[in-house]
């Protein structure tokens, strides 16, 4: 593992170039450019706000619907678009993978970093919303970088695993959107964590994303400290997923070029 990380460090310039490439390509190819980054979480927020404030009433504990949804959809979109884009990063670059050596994890890592840039752009809207709804900035915000770090580790783990598996089984990328949908329903995005029955709560929080999304809402919208137990469980599980996925990825890497 350390030798892999050392090797990755030697290739840091390539990692950086590849990240820049991914970002440039993404905005060059699309008609709306940067607007896409914002449009995705924003449109979902509008739909959820209309549906869950008018047709079905989801209790938000007094938090205005738009900001309640955007606060969850913003980080969720980062993970889900990383995974949906990242799953085919190896297969899409088969020309390179079969011809030239470099640590292959550069491809999934830069897919995640490029999505993170989208996330930062979409966060500007969030800042605007917070000004509009007069959400105060409190000391609980110090948790933000910690939560983001855990989420990046979790996301990277899933992308490493899914992209390697997609080399062997090409239909993984069709399974991914379905999986993401299920995952979203198992995460407190549409509804608050408080709606999950107490007796399932422990099992429910094994989904690391559940603890993370709930914590984002707590620290930003309710100026509360996150539930430490929930965050610790999320951190441990995320790190576990990442380490296992990285080991699997490096093992699978040996035969990528023979299969692609």
């Amino acid at each position: 593992m350390t030798s892999n990380l050392k090797e990755l460090f030697r290739y840091r310039e390539l990692l950086w170039s590849w990240v820049v490439r991914d970002i440039k390509v993404r905005y060059k190819q699309s008609l709306l450019g940067i607007a896409w980054a914002i449009l995705q979480p924003l449109s979902a927020t509008i739909i959820f706000t209309v549906v869950f404030s008018r047709f079905v009433r989801v209790p938000t504990g007094g938090i205005p619907y738009p900001i309640f949804y955007y606060s969850a959809l913003l980080p969720w979109t980062f993970s889900s678009s990383s995974i949906t884009f990242g799953v085919s990063c190896l297969v899409n670059n088969m020309g390179l993978v079969t011809k030239i050596y470099f640590p292959r994890e550069i491809l999934p890592i830069s897919a995640v970093v490029a999505s993170f840039v989208d996330f930062l752009i979409a966060a500007v809207i969030y800042a605007g919303m917070m000004v509009f709804y007069q959400v105060p900035v409190g000391p609980s915000w110090v948790w933000m970088p910690v939560l983001l770090l855990i989420q990046v580790i979790l996301t990277l783990g899933v992308v490493l695993f899914a992209s390697a598996l997609n080399v062997f089984y090409r239909d993984i990328r069709f399974v991914v959107p379905l999986g993401m949908q299920l995952w979203m329903y198992l995460t407190p995005i549409i509804y608050p964590l408080s709606m999950v029955p107490e007796r399932f709560r422990g099992l429910y929080l094994l989904n690391p994303m559940a603890g993370l999304i709930d914590s984002y809402r707590r620290i930003i919208l309710q100026a509360q400290w996150p539930d430490l137990a929930g965050v610790s469980v999320a951190a441990v599980i995320s790190l576990g997923i990442f380490i296992l996925a990285y080991i699997y990825f490096k093992r699978a890497e040996a035969v990528f070029a023979d299969i692609i």
Binding site: F168, R170, V175, D258
Partner: peptide
């Protein structure tokens, strides 16, 4: 090289 394997589908 293993021929005829790899690059499969879940099926």
């Amino acid at each position: 090289y293993r021929i005829g394997r790899g690059r499969g589908s879940l099926r």
